[in-house]
Design a protein around this nucleic acid. Structure first.
Lengths: 108, 108
DNA sequence: GCTACATATGTATGTGTGCTCATACTACGC
DNA sequence: GCGTAGTATGAGCACACATACATATGTAGC
């Protein structure tokens, strides 16, 4: 990464949005498809007001797109490439998790 | 991403660790090199105890590696691939930020 | 317009977490 | 061993944020 131009300000809201279990569950529930809020509520088993709250944060972080269809509002990921990036990060973490468990990440 | 196996539990600690401005600054200060804590303190202009606190979180999230060299403890990123992944995410965010500003991400 | 449904917003509260201070640990040089 | 530099830990405080409840907005059908 171009750490010289330290993208902290740019990436921070995205990481903040991703750092919540409920929001990750919502993204999981979304998958690659577009779904109305009701579907997400059922899939995640979270209260409606809670889902709506988190969807707003994800929306403002640019991680989901909202699209009105009649009385329903469909939410979807804005770009399949986002999935690819997150997947590579997931793979990296998984690979390093098994390494880390054999190493010393304790105190000094 | 394989959202079927919902990697929330795996990714959450990583995102939590990345969701802090101070920690992102520390990672920026680290760059691709290994540096002792003192260097990081000067680079980030954060108090020593604070840097140490965040380094621990980054260490436990597997985002930095600690290595003792005499009286110093050097910290570095565990893997250059991590940089690549974060960079692609950064690029994605940057690209979608410019789009988002032209779109409606407000309330419904 | 009224009712019903889908979704969003506002307020209050409790918990988590970052920051600061003081202090303790570790390694090196004398 | 002692002092010093480098680094880590622990306690206390303040603030941000996730949750829950009540309520408002918007859309469709009658």
């Amino acid at each position: 990464m171009d750490w010289k131009s330290c993208p902290a300000a740019l990436l921070e809201p995205v990481f903040k949005a991703l750092a919540e279990p409920s929001r990750l569950r919502i993204l999981c529930a979304l998958g690659t498809e577009c779904r109305p809020v009701t579907d997400i509520i059922h899939a995640t088993d979270l209260p409606q007001t809670n889902v709506s709250f988190h969807l707003r944060i994800l929306r403002e972080a640019g991680l989901v797109r909202a699209e009105r269809r009649g009385a329903f509002i469909y939410y979807c990921l804005p770009d399949p490439e986002l999935l690819a990036i997150l997947q590579s990060l997931q793979l990296w973490v998984a690979a390093h998790d098994s390494l880390a468990s054999t190493q010393d990440s304790g105190r000094y």
